[in-house]
Design a protein around this nucleic acid. Structure first.
Lengths: 183, 183
DNA sequence: CACCGATATATCGATTCGATATATCCAATT
DNA sequence: AATTGGATATATCGAATCGATATATCGGTG
């Protein structure tokens, strides 16, 4: 799941697993995952839907008479299988900001093992990032712009906060799992 | 400064203001501004340098005999003027993540007034973002995935921390200015 | 019932990325 | 002294992606 196209395929199948949708609504929901000020462009959505349709991963639902110009898509068996496959299939790209964001938004669909693996991967990646930033920040700096340094300090803090957040999540994933076991 | 090309032009001129550089080194330094795991691609750098050369904003420095395949560029008067112009010319795009990051990295080159204006703009933008997230998080949620909600909560916290960070910076910018005045 | 903003699908040119090619420099190894 | 390999350095191409815009319909308001 490295390119945006792949991330989009995952998000599309994931959302259609929950309920049938048309392109416009799909775009809104994916944009909502990305958060404010970061919408997904239409030119990705519609060609994408056609691709998935041709591949038999989604199918056209019944067109309501009321809104003629609206095409509702629902997921097929094949599409569900593909989504499950993508969910299981974690690559190092999954720790990238956007990939992680989307994977995280569909955690409800994944297994607990899977959730933990993804959280740990993201955790590892951020640890690496933090180490690099820390080395930059703590090095006695000669001739480095003080504002750039200040930005790095802030980035380091952000990374550390996300690391702590991930640790909490991993913790609670694990304890939930144990609870289920001992029940 | 909306497109990546424009951000890159700003960063290039800014770095060349500080010292002459060749493409490879330029790319490394711009990537350093972006932080770990987010490099700039070569296909942006070299065509960009040619454009700036043609526009007379940069010029080829003396080629050292030692390293034949290395072309060092330095900024021209015209280039310096252009950089000053870009520094002053703030648009709403300047509050976008990437634009702000780069502008911030060249704060040393800007006037104090300019610094404050940029910080305040970013502050405004993040306030807006935080409000939207807060509304989402605090709304009694029916049927929203608990992980997506958790992600929003985390995003809100990050935004709030950056807001506080910006407020500190604005504060210290202002007090420095006053100190200079009263001297 | 006329208007307008939100809904809905669609496409195009321009931008940007990712992968790769080619060659050089330099330090370590043999 | 020759060889190897990894970092340095410039360059380009096709594919992916964006941003802007066109077109039409829907639903509520005056």
């Amino acid at each position: 799941m490295s390119t945006r196209t792949e991330v989009l395929e995952f998000a599309t199948l994931g959302l259609l697993t929950q309920s049938p949708l048309h392109g416009y609504e799909l775009r809104k929901r994916i944009s909502a995952i990305y958060g404010p000020f970061k919408a997904l462009s239409f030119s990705m959505i519609y060609p994408q839907l056609r691709r998935l349709l041709e591949a038999g991963l989604i199918e056209e639902g019944a067109r309501t008479e009321a809104r003629r110009s609206r095409i509702v898509y629902r997921i097929t068996k094949k599409g569900e299988a593909r989504f499950a496959e993508l969910t299981e299939n974690i690559s190092p790209d999954s720790w990238d900001d956007e990939s992680f964001e989307v994977r995280f938004a569909f955690f409800g669909e994944a297994s607990s093992n899977n959730r933990v693996r993804i959280l740990e991967g993201r955790h590892r990646r951020l640890k690496e990032k933090a180490e690099i930033l820390r080395a930059d920040v703590e090095r006695p700096n000669v001739g480095i712009d003080k504002y750039l340094e200040e930005w790095r300090r802030h980035s380091l803090e952000s990374a550390e906060r996300e690391i702590a957040w991930l640790e909490d999540l991993i913790q609670s994933e694990r304890s939930e799992k144990n609870e289920r076991k001992t029940k």
